[in-house]
Amino acid sequence: MRIHIQLSPELDVRKTQHLYSLGLTPDPIAYGFHHALNTGYDISFSSSVLNGPIYQFIRKSIIKIFCLDLLHAIGNWKKIEQADVVWTVTDVEYLGVLLVLILSNNKNTFVLCNNVWLFDRLTKKPRLYSNLIVRMLVKRANLLTFHSVAHQRKAEEFMEGANLRTVPFGISDEAFVVQKPSKGRTRTTTKIFCPGNDKTRNWDAIHQAFANNSKFDVVIVCDRLPISYFEKASNFRQVKRPTIDEFKELYRSTDFVVVSMYENSYSGITVALEAAAMGVPIVSTDTGGIRTYFDDDEVKYVPLASPDAIRDAILNMPIDEAYNQAVKAQSRFIEDNYRCSRMVADYFSLSVA
């Protein structure tokens, strides 16, 4: 049995292993797919074949217009064509894989197509465009999987009768070892940690909620924000490209993790799972994929675009309530095993007879 894992060029195995050796990524292979290597199956990974500014411009233009990474799929054509099973993690990879299989008239290779953004994007596209993507490409998928129940519901509007399944995401088994929650907050200043590079993050709301308020000390990990964002807030600090050990220390040294988002059906999951493993209370916008994993007594949810609600949720939450919330979230994390190794096991069970 040959299983090919199609990852983005940015997550090329050689690149990831180098970053892992520097302590900058949690696993030697992205998404914990190293757990698949000792199973007795013939496992291959996509490789980054070409590079250069012209290639990247064409590649990213195709992705922006058509939502698929065609050039990367063509570069791995042989591996895809020869595989019995192909696994993917994001939409742009699986759409490229499906197009390659359609062009080669391959009807046998089983493709597990994991969705992250696609159906949010399609709701914003003309119906003719959406129908073209769905009818010409997505119909070739053997199984559509989702890390977010909310995103799966959006897909059901486009894919009536298709094989859809929620597969919970998982974070690194080795990097994020469970740390028991502590009651903390003996300081006069409440420490807030806001990590996240997704375009869905509402950083304006974070600024409005906490900027220049002496009651809060805010640490942000996001490469997208300009220096001016931090210059306008005396109590904000940016941490750029922390190592995994530094990242874990940021979780351990904070009082709350805050996930502020714009409307979407998939975002915030990774940060919420990491915070739960680290035993930190979570305040999140009530959107995205976090509700797939945690209920109201495990995460404090606040309305969209409500900076005051974010701030008040923290100011008005007693220490015992915050501690109990963190305990419950961590218990759910452990009970439902939100780990990479479990996610890889799910991939096997869903695609290998």
Rank of each mutant, 00 (worst) to 15 (best):
R2P: 08
Q6N: 13
E10F: 11
D12H: 07
R14N: 11
R14W: 05
Q17L: 09
H18Y: 10
Y20Q: 05
G23D: 04
L24D: 06
T25S: 02
D27F: 05
I29L: 01
I29W: 01
I29R: 06
A30W: 14
H34A: 10
H34D: 15
N38C: 01
G40R: 11
I43S: 00
F45P: 13
S48H: 05
S48T: 11
S61L: 10
I62D: 05
I65V: 08
C67A: 10
D69G: 04
A73R: 13
A73Q: 12
I74T: 02
G75D: 07
W77H: 15
K78I: 08
T88D: 06
T88W: 14
V92T: 15
V97M: 07
L103P: 01
N105Q: 13
N105C: 13
K107A: 05
V116I: 15
W117L: 07
R127M: 14
L137A: 13
V138C: 12
S148K: 00
R153M: 10
M159F: 08
A162T: 07
A162Y: 15
L164H: 03
L164K: 03
V167N: 04
P168Q: 08
E174V: 13
E174I: 14
V178H: 04
S182F: 06
S182D: 05
T188S: 14
T190G: 00
D204L: 09
A205V: 10
Q208H: 10
N212A: 05
N212L: 12
N213H: 11
S214N: 11
K215P: 00
F216H: 03
V218W: 09
V219I: 08
P226M: 09
I227E: 14
Y229W: 04
V239G: 02
T243D: 04
I244P: 02
E246G: 03
K248I: 13
Y251R: 02
Y251F: 15
R252S: 10
T254R: 05
T254S: 15
D255G: 00
V258M: 11
M261H: 13
M261T: 13
Y266A: 13
T270V: 10
V271I: 15
L273Q: 08
A276L: 05
A277L: 04
G288Q: 11
R291Y: 00
Y293E: 02
P307I: 08
D312G: 06
A313L: 05
V327N: 04
E335I: 12
E335L: 15
R342A: 14
M343K: 11
V344P: 12
S349Q: 12
A353K: 09
A353M: 03
